[in-house]
Amino acid sequence: MVTAAIEIDNVTKTFDDLIAVNRVSFQVPRGATLGLIGPNGAGKTTLLRMISTLAVPDSGDVRVEGKSVRENPRAARAHLGFMPAEFGCPRNMSIEEYLDYFACMYGLTTAERAVRIRDVCELTDLMGRESVMVKGLSTGNRQRLLLAKTLLHDPSVLVLDEPASGLDPRARNELREIIKTLASLGKAIIISSHILPDIEDISDRVGILEAGRLVLEGDLATLRAHTGTAQRSVRLKVSSEDLERTSQMLAQLRGVSTCEIREQMIVLSTDEPNSNFVLAALLQQDIRVLQFAENEVNLEEIFMRSTAGKVT
């Protein structure tokens, strides 16, 4: 039986009377990326710390490459690469010294260190900047360096806590590409972020946490199905005298799930693969279309629908 790289089995963690994580279970196979989203205080960081062996679950268990974080945390750590949200760094070091310092911590030999440092610098686009001092790095380069450090011992499981926090759009785009590359190399990745378009772009599956509970988990189609959200939404504008008539006509059209008037526009949702049938109906009825826009329902909408804004 092929086991998943990360198996989270009914994990609970409490702090005094606060339930930070409440009976959460899911799996991440190798080569897959799971995006973890949720409001502030939902328990994302606590869950990531438990996966990373930095906190012990009160009940349930987490297995990393089959190794229990409760029973054998040292073995689990060997497969783990954890990129924390904060940048902790020894003082007065260049990028190369920083990477060498942590490569020593991972127990790499002198020869291995040279190769690995070159590889991770290449992957994270830090090549040629090895002698730059760490304390003068921009936020983007710091995140790159933190990711490079996380990859030094070639872990098969990556846990990334808010990796894109504070990055500009270009740096975010580059980071997304790096993460996609890592997933293509067969690494299992869990990434937590508040930047939902990024999560939507890079994740195969998404988990939504709220008040310590895993509200939803699955690929986007599954999430849409669970929230009752249709595949696409169409916003169209017609002349004001046609507005009521058009709305009634479209509501009765086969394939349209919902149809309503919002701010002088008709908003409808459909599960059909495209919305050409709506256009065809409008033309058939000789209704003059002033504006027509078709969108896929995005993660943000699913998130808003599936969470109630509760925090622990």
Partner: peptide, 25 residues
């Protein structure tokens, strides 16, 4: 003092380094 100032304790734990190997250098 180094790790205290840099606050990279988590990274020390995750590296799996033993206390003796950390200090022996």
């Amino acid at each position: 003092m180094g790790p205290r100032i840099g606050r990279y304790f988590d990274q020390i734990v995750l590296s799996g380094i033993t206390p003796l190997r950390f200090l022996i250098g």
